[in-house]
């Protein structure tokens, strides 16, 4: 009995000791690349970072969120090696160097059976704020509009609100969905629904026979091509920013983010790789 106890305690101490030792050694060995900023880019940056770490043993890519503004501020002050910003830079921030790695865009989506083929910005605002309640007011059938919104914190919600100049509390939704896939299922099952989705996902599902319709914006077709080309209006660039021309490991990382090797990761997050 006693021997058993001694053995257990001994083993525990041993493993604790080796864990602490391993931690200190690995921390001493590691070089770190620090990225801070946009929570839209962060999940993608984490995955790219993981792949990058595998190629560069002994390097740790440290990704922290806190919003695009923090990313820009940190890059400026040199706290972060690279800042992440999911918006265009303001003129006051132009001294930073921008490296676009991908584009994120959303489009309005209807059920394929809905006769409405385009909506103006003000009509969309009217629908989402509850001023327009019936499809016949915008040239459709006599049926109540079923409005779909996204949960707070989602990148697509942020793009949508910013583009149409809306505040989330003023939106009257009939349902709130989480991810794009749930949104698509809901619209495909309801002929009177309207929602907005990531263009990448919406296009993929439409090509695979899901009965949805992607609405153009400002007469520009919603597709991954127009998004990649930068002509589709409801979109934003996903940028890495650096103070001055990057060098060393930061330069290698940015080049890695823009290379074909990570296009699969970018697409998996429903973004489109930026065409240079």
């Amino acid at each position: 009995m006693k021997r058993f106890l001694v053995l257990t305690v001994g083993l525990l101490l041993l493993s604790l000791g080796s864990w602490i030792g391993w931690k200190t050694i690995s921390r001493a060995q590691n070089r770190r690349l620090v990225l801070t900023g946009s929570s839209t880019i962060a999940p993608l940056a984490v995955e790219i970072g993981r792949r990058f770490e595998a190629l560069h043993p002994g390097l740790r890519v440290d990704v922290q969120t806190g919003g695009s503004s923090r990313g820009i501020a940190d890059a400026r002050r040199g706290i972060a090696d690279i800042g992440m910003a999911s918006r265009r830079l303001k003129t006051s921030e132009k001294e930073l160097l921008v490296h676009t790695i991908a584009r994120d865009g959303i489009c309005m989506v209807l059920h394929a059976g809905n006769p409405v083929s385009s909506l103006s910005d003000s009509q969309i605002v009217g629908i989402y704020t509850g001023k327009i309640q019936n499809w016949k007011e915008v040239g459709g059938k006599d049926a109540a509009i079923f409005v779909l919104n996204k949960a707070e914190g989602r990148g697509t919600l942020e793009v949508f609100l910013k583009f149409f100049g809306l505040e989330n509390p003023s939106i009257h939704a009939d349902a709130i969905v989480g991810d794009n896939e749930q949104g698509i299922k809901t619209i495909a099952g309801n002929p009177n629904a309207i929602g907005y989705l990531s263009i990448g996902t919406a296009e993929y599902d439409q090509k695979h026979g899901v009965p949805i319709k992607l609405l153009p914006s400002h007469a520009v077709q919603a597709s991954t091509e127009t998004l990649a080309a930068g002509t589709f209006p409801i979109s934003r660039p996903l940028n890495l920013v650096t103070k001055g021309v990057p060098s060393g490991i930061a330069k290698t990382f940015i080049e890695f983010c823009q290379a074909k090797d990570v296009h699969d990761l970018i697409k998996a997050h429903y973004f489109v790789p930026a065409t240079r």
Binding site: S39, T65, G66, G67, A151, E152, G153, R154, G155, I176, G178
Partner: peptide, 12 residues
């Protein structure tokens, strides 16, 4: 929790 956790930061 399930809807918002993966995209929430700080106080949220």
């Amino acid at each position: 929790i399930a809807l918002e956790m993966s995209y929430a930061g700080d106080l949220h």
